[in-house]
Design a protein around this nucleic acid. Structure first.
Ligand code: MN
Ligand code: MN
Ligand code: MN
Ligand code: MN
Lengths: 220, 220
DNA sequence: TATAAAAGTTAGACTAACCTAACAAATAAA
DNA sequence: TTTATTTGTTAGGTTAGTCTAACTTTTATA
């Protein structure tokens, strides 16, 4: 049985391994920063996780999830994203509100609960942010997606996921009436600052920043 | 902000105050036994709760919830029973399975979640065990109910709630196809051992023990 | 009312998860 | 290849929640 805190360390490690695409390893300071604790604290926990065979790690070395560790981490991520979907779909939470509550709900221990919840939600593949929901067997659906900033002028796409999940960005998207699945056409890219003129569904054209285009994943 | 553990102490105190109908006070050992900790542990926590003005208590004295303490305890009970209802109604949990998971879910912090959940469930008044669900304002619906054992032969009633919520009893009820609302007619009471012959809905008569009749609340 | 039993408290210790301050190792820069 | 910087560890301490063992107060019983 894993403690609340141990679960958070494992999930952090998994998230970092997605982030550092090339090498799925993480460092102590990186972990600590991600979790909002001091490096000394992370070191202690890492020793404990190693003892439990959830990570491979040695003094001054990089940290990597073991198979068991990864399995556990994926299970937590699965719960997180299922709960987010529940809150969004069934309880009318907006997509910038779901994360905080899911951070708590992901630690509820009950195999039956997760599976029944998934069934209740009709086996969703993606959460409200467009992130894939791991299956019960640990598989993670993959969707080919690109950053909006990678498309050429003239091309069209559909919003697939948000890269930046900050409240500010999510609320901005909401204001623009952009959600997962929304159609976007790139009209023009301004060479000067990388900002672009886009058409959202059939609305009037508008301009968004390069930062914006770097924060949104789309499907061609 | 209350800790997980503090919340459990407050809820325990509220439950004990329902149990000891005459006097809503509790003793240290009683609390400890209820929570599955040692008396010494309870003493420590009681001091802390007193410090936070959640209970009135003094050395060797009885323990009583303050208004704030009671308000908090009711909020937790409300969450517990709403979650039980959710699990039972929406996720197909059986009524002996809901409690354990609700014990965890009741500690999720999110005012919006509770209220949205209540709305989603259509403002239920009673949980799967027939226990009243406190309203957002703290009011607790009351239903006039009697023990099955208090009825005279010949009378009819409807099952209102279970007094004993043990798995064994709940599963026995399930086997007898008795649930909240089920109609029961008392045919005969055996003077020898207090057992009684009853008719469940329109089924064949059957005999149940006095212990059984003392564990079931009904409505005349 | 004296004594035995029950109820409750205190002291001291442990573990998990955190911290700060001082140190050590690894890496990057000069 | 030294030196400086970054990265990570260790030592020692704190708090919440738990325990055991010894003690004290209250209550019940003879
Ligand atoms: Mn999230
Ligand atoms: Mn998400
Ligand atoms: Mn319950
Ligand atoms: Mn209940």
């Amino acid at each position: 049985m894993l403690s609340y805190t141990e679960e958070n360390y494992l999930k952090a490690l998994l998230k970092l391994s997605f982030q550092n695409e090339d090498k799925p390893e993480a460092g102590t300071n990186e972990m600590a920063a991600y979790l909002g604790v001091k490096p000394a604290t992370a070191t202690d926990m890492l020793k404990k996780l190693k003892e439990k065979d959830l990570v491979t790690y040695q003094k001054y070395g990089k940290i990597l999830l073991t198979d068991t560790g990864k399995k556990n981490a994926i299970a937590i991520l699965r719960k997180h994203r299922l709960w987010e979907t529940f809150l969004y779909e069934k309880l009318d939470f907006s997509w910038d509100e779901v994360h905080e509550v899911a951070e708590q709900l992901e630690h509820i221990q009950s195999a039956k609960l997760v599976d029944k919840l998934e069934e209740f939600l009709n086996f969703p593949e993606f959460d409200p942010h467009g992130d894939p929901i791991p299956k019960a067997n640990g598989e993670i659906p993959i969707l080919a997606k690109t950053l909006l900033s990678a498309l050429e002028p003239g091309s069209s796409c559909k919003v697939a996921a948000v890269k930046d999940t900050s409240t500010l960005f999510l609320q901005y998207l909401q204001k623009l009436q952009i959600t997962i699945g929304t159609k976007i056409k790139i009209l023009e890219v301004i060479a000067f600052d990388g900002s672009l003129s886009i058409q959202i569904e059939d609305e009037e054209p508008r301009t968004v920043s390069m930062k914006f285009a770097d924060s949104l994943f789309v499907q061609r």
